[in-house]
Design a protein around this nucleic acid. Structure first.
Lengths: 138, 138
DNA sequence: ATTTTTAGTTAGCAAATACTAACTACATTT
DNA sequence: AAATGTAGTTAGTATTTGCTAACTAAAAAT
């Protein structure tokens, strides 16, 4: 019987490999690792402005500004001027930019398929019930 | 009741956040995202030579050579000349370089702790049994 | 034994990634 | 109303990250 840490580590590898594989499928050679990181954080932070994004990434505002300019030029990102504060603009992902998140969804779907093939209906229900408790609690 | 894909997505976030948090704890500001990627792949590929690493990362050999030179200079990596082929050298991680992998272990430990706090002993056993089946099968 | 292939390197270049300092325009505080 | 603070930008610079072309030395194939 394996212990919990080994299981987590295995799960981490499973997810990591699926993400790697999905990246190859989605053919995003035009983006660097760093640029993907920006796009993922714009998604997670839900349309941040440049100041918020810079703080999250621990980078200076000019650095983030230049990086975002390039992502706008390549049509992954666009700006929406804030109503509340005319100095500020929110960063949004274009359909092309959202592709990166769809890539993550794709990876998750692949793993879900693998799991379905390996477990009985009862085991699946048990897994869902227990992990729901882990994810929702507190 | 949630479905499996949502669970996987939640799990992915849980792992991602733990890794992010661990990175902050381990204070690896001297390394860029890309450099960490090199180090992780040297670990995963188990002491590859430059040609193998370049193929895995889809980068040219001169690019990888220059990057590795910098990681050697910063004492994250060292080379070991191959016995079998005198042209070739295997890349190894120094203790400092292995810190990145210890960081992953730390993240996994944190998640294991979280799970232990949220589940009863029976639920933990059930989770381990089912995930062992997922990870070991075929 | 000679040719071809392979591992790694060197040089020269371009783009991406990061910084600080200094600035404009708007918002907030006093 | 004036002073201070904040969001974003611009300019200038250094480092990192990536490439191709051309090379050396060793290994493999002919």
């Amino acid at each position: 019987m394996k212990n919990l840490i080994e299981i987590i580590s295995g799960l981490s590898n499973l997810l990591g490999n699926a993400e790697e594989h999905a990246k190859e499928q989605f053919n995003l050679q035009s983006l660097t690792l760093t640029q993907m990181h920006y796009i993922e954080n714009i998604h997670v932070l839900n349309n941040p402005n440049i100041t918020e994004l810079a703080a999250t990434l621990n980078l200076s505002k000019p650095t983030v500004k230049v990086a975002i300019d390039k992502l706008i030029e390549k049509a992954y990102v666009f700006k929406v001027q804030s109503d509340a504060d005319r100095r500020s603009a929110h960063l949004h992902l274009t359909e092309k930019g959202k592709l990166i998140n769809q890539m993550h969804d794709f990876a998750h779907k692949q793993i879900a398929e693998q799991i379905k093939h390996k477990l009985t209906a009862e085991e699946q229900q048990s897994l869902i019930a227990v992990l729901t408790k882990v994810l929702l609690e507190k």
